[in-house]
């Protein structure tokens, strides 16, 4: 850890910029940036002694999602956000920074919902602790959750504490053939009722639902739905979309779950709230469509000079700039990764 802090301090004094890197699995996410050097957390790993009944795990930021999943599985627990593991290379720090979550997200929360605290190295080279290692903590501003989506622009995440849960006793995937419109209606109607859903998606003309919970509840729901049983492969394949975008970029729309499908070729995840669209449209055009659907569009693909995230209104943009200044006054960390102007 001292090494990390020293590198940050040296960069500050020499006026350098740092590209924060964990497993380097998400180089294609965000804008292309030119940094003086890389600050690697790849070897900054380790899981702190973990007591399963506390439902809390603390790890160094470079610990991989795969390693965390394996450790939790030994105790019948899991990371409810089901974060993509990028073939074993994704780290918990990078996953939080990129706000990368799996199919269970609408039902069990994102990693940001699970995060309880973190250690951060700010742009002055100070090592700071926010939040805690207990399930509830509201003292001070929530700087830990603030890191979600910041893409490393608000400091170096050094350690993360997060909530974990017991794995449901049973999980079954079922499917049926239907249109995108029907799938969106079905996914939302079921989520508003008592069906024990833990994921729902529409891929290539097929609606997939995952049922989770006590054996009796899952079996009762299966009988009621009368859909064909599937293997769980589809959920893993949805998780690899993030990764696949490195070679074939897509727009990721985060929208109201009930929004009617746009006319594009797409995959619908998160019960309707996440839509992966393949299109030649510009970000501005896609953003216009997404805004009508109650949300926003981002470009996930080969890193580029252009903006990848939607433009912000002036007042909000000013807030983002001042917030960056407040944590990283010299702009050392990942300059331009999120927006060209920050």
């Amino acid at each position: 850890m001292k090494q990390l802090i020293d590198q940050v301090k040296t960069a500050i004094s020499e006026g350098k910029t740092l590209r924060i890197e964990g497993g380097n699995s998400k180089a294609h996410i965000g804008r292309a940036t030119e940094c003086s050097e890389t600050l690697s957390l790849r070897d900054h790993t380790g899981i702190a002694p973990y007591n399963p009944v506390e439902l809390v795990m603390t790890t160094k930021a470079g610990t991989t999602i795969a390693e965390i999943n394996a450790e939790l599985a030994k105790h019948g627990q899991f990371l409810p956000a089901e974060c993509p593991d990028f073939d074993g290379s994704a780290t918990i720090g990078g996953t939080l920074a990129a706000n990368c979550n799996g199919a269970g997200r609408p039902f069990r929360g994102a990693l940001r919902d699970l995060v309880l605290g973190c250690y951060l190295i700010n742009g002055k080279g100070e090592h700071l602790r926010f939040g805690g290692t207990v399930l509830k903590n509201v003292a001070g501003y929530d700087v830990s959750r603030l890191q979600s989506g910041a893409m490393g622009t608000l400091g170096v995440i050094e350690e993360v504490s997060f909530k974990v849960l017991p794995r449901p006793a049973m999980e079954i995937t079922v499917s049926k053939t239907c249109s995108a419109e029907d799938a969106i209606t079905t996914m939302n109607k079921l989520a508003a009722g008592s069906t024990p859903l833990s994921a729902s998606a529409w891929v290539n003309g097929t609606l997939y639902l995952r049922l989770a919970g006590a054996k009796t509840a899952v079996e009762a729901a299966m009988a009621q739905l009368a859909m064909r049983e599937e293997d769980a492969e589809v959920w893993a394949s949805l998780n690899t979309l993030w990764q696949d975008c490195a070679t074939e970029g897509r727009y990721r729309l985060s929208v109201k779950s009930t929004a009617a499908p746009s006319g594009h070729a797409q995959i619908i995840n998160w019960g309707g709230a996440e839509r992966w669209v393949s299109s030649d449209a510009t970000l501005a055009q896609m953003q216009q469509a997404a805004a009508k659907m109650g949300g926003e569009a981002r470009w996930i693909g080969a890193a580029r000079e252009d903006e990848v995230n939607p433009a912000l209104p002036d007042a909000l943009k000013a807030l983002h700039k001042r917030l960056k200044q407040s944590i990283d006054p010299r702009g050392v960390f990942n300059p331009g990764r999120l927006y060209s102007w920050n």
């Binding site: 994102a110 603030l146 989506g149 608000l154 729309l253 985060s254 709230a273 949300g295 995230n309």
Partner: peptide, 11 residues
């Protein structure tokens, strides 16, 4: 937004 997440730090 009405979606489940937005780009950028979690304000």
């Amino acid at each position: 937004s009405e979606g489940l997440d937005s780009a950028g730090p979690d304000l």
